[in-house]
């Protein structure tokens, strides 16, 4: 896969990253090297190999439906830049 400047810009926008010109060039270079490295896998025959999404041999990690205390509301709001009536206050997002 070829990494283009447009792709870098698009991915940066999706991640809400504000990159300057030098950072964009660096990202283009790094992403190209990373994908080239991973491309080495394409040389292997993976027919009949189940795709794997986790490296650990874990499955069915579950808990019972038992409530436990939540955090105190003031702790939840501790990192809120602004708050009102127990809510986080965010830039206008609803119509």
């Amino acid at each position: 896969m070829k990494v283009t400047r447009e792709l870098v810009d698009s991915v940066a926008h999706l991640a809400r990253l504000d990159l300057d010109a030098a950072e964009r060039e660096a990202a283009l270079r790094d992403l190209t090297r990373i994908l080239d490295y991973v491309d080495a896998l394409s040389a292997l025959d993976t027919d009949g190999v189940q795709p794997m999404s986790h490296a650990l041999r874990l499955q069915n990690v579950l808990r019972a439906d038992e409530p436990a205390p939540s955090m105190a509301a003031q702790d939840v709001l501790q990192n809120a830049p602004e708050r009102k009536d127990g809510c986080f206050l965010a830039p206008r997002a609803v119509e």
Partner: peptide
């Protein structure tokens, strides 16, 4: 849940 706050013209978030 998001609620528009007309006084501050911003969005209030309750998680």
């Amino acid at each position: 849940k998001l609620v528009h706050d007309p006084w501050t013209d911003r969005t209030m978030a309750d998680y």
